[in-house]
Amino acid sequence: MLSSDPIGQAVHNFHFKRINKPVTIYADGFDPDYVQPSYFFRSFEQMPQIEQLALQKARGHVLDVGACAGCHSIYLQNKGIEVTALERSALCCGVLKDRNIQNVIHSDLYNLHSPTFDTILLLMNGTGIAGTLHGFNNFLKHLKKLLKPDGQILIDSSDLIYLYMDEDGSALVDLNSENYYGELVYQTEYNGQKGTEFPWLYLDPENLKEHAKQCGLKIEKGDHFDFLATIKHA
């Protein structure tokens, strides 16, 4: 039996029923990964350093894209920052509202056209929403329309090149492959029900910089394989 929202169901069950049964995440070429729903309810102290840094940099009216259970939105709201939680899962939206997030929008990112924001926050590998490298320009162009003239996009990602590196530091990547090495296809499962497969993009800093330039944006990038980028109008 297929369910289109395994993560939403897991988050909903944890919040309302305290059931902490894991979500299984599948990707071709990788062993299954397991995520406890409680992870989506983590406190600021429990967050990775990149997420903490992004939240500390957030300012003005913030759009939290893919808010899920609202851990980022709650932190910002408690600091007195105006935040709008954007979430395509109806189940997650129910959790967000029950957790007293003041502004919740149940929508896909690409269906949101107003208002504009001072900070657009995309965490937990925010580049993944673009799906593929080919789709990343349209993704950035849409975000640009939602960004105020002096606004900032805070987005994190990982360069998966490390998966292909030898001990001497060289990387074996098939440059003739039809697919960029950071493009994965995921499927999630919860309580025996699988969702539909979906593409997810991990992007290296140089590709991010080049695509931002093409869209009339500029970035300040972080270091190493996991990084936080601040993107602004050029």
Rank of each mutant, 00 (worst) to 15 (best):
S114N: 09
G80K: 03
Y110P: 01
I50M: 00
Q9K: 15
F44L: 03
A27F: 08
L203I: 14
I25K: 10
I155M: 01
D28T: 13
F136D: 04
D150N: 15
I81W: 00
H233V: 15
I231R: 00
A212H: 11
H134N: 13
P37G: 04
D226Q: 08
A171W: 06
S43C: 09
D108M: 08
G80H: 04
Y162L: 13
S107T: 05
V65F: 02
Y164V: 13
S158M: 15
A10K: 03
V173M: 06
L208M: 12
F225E: 11
G126P: 02
I219F: 11
L201N: 05
L121G: 02
D28F: 08
A130G: 10
T24A: 10
D31H: 14
R18M: 14
H113F: 06
E82P: 07
Q52S: 04
K232D: 09
L96Q: 03
Q56V: 08
L91R: 07
L203K: 10
K21Q: 11
Y202I: 12
G8S: 08
L160E: 11
E210P: 05
C68Y: 12
C92F: 06
S38G: 02
T127D: 06
L86Q: 05
V83N: 02
Y164K: 15
P48N: 14
N179M: 03
G151H: 02
S170V: 05
V83L: 00
S114F: 14
Q193V: 07
F30H: 10
L147Q: 00
K141P: 10
L163C: 09
Q152F: 05
L86F: 12
K79I: 06
T132F: 09
Y202S: 07
A90T: 15
I129D: 10
G222A: 00
K209I: 13
R42I: 12
N20F: 01
M1A: 11
D33F: 08
T132Q: 02
L91T: 07
L109G: 01
Y181L: 13
K144A: 09
V173T: 12
L228E: 00
P149K: 03
A212Y: 14
E206L: 15
L86C: 07
I105T: 09
V23P: 02
K194G: 05
E220G: 12
H106W: 11
T116G: 13
R99C: 08
D174H: 07
T230I: 15
G60L: 10
N13R: 07
C215T: 08
P149M: 04
I153R: 01
F41S: 11
S89V: 00
D168M: 02
K17L: 15
H134Q: 12
L63E: 03
N137H: 11
L143V: 03
A234P: 13
F30P: 05
D204H: 09
A10S: 08
K148H: 13
I219W: 15
L217Y: 07
K79A: 14
V11W: 09
N191M: 09
Q187H: 06
S43M: 12
V173S: 11
G192M: 11
D108R: 10
Q193G: 06
V62N: 02
P6W: 06
F16G: 00
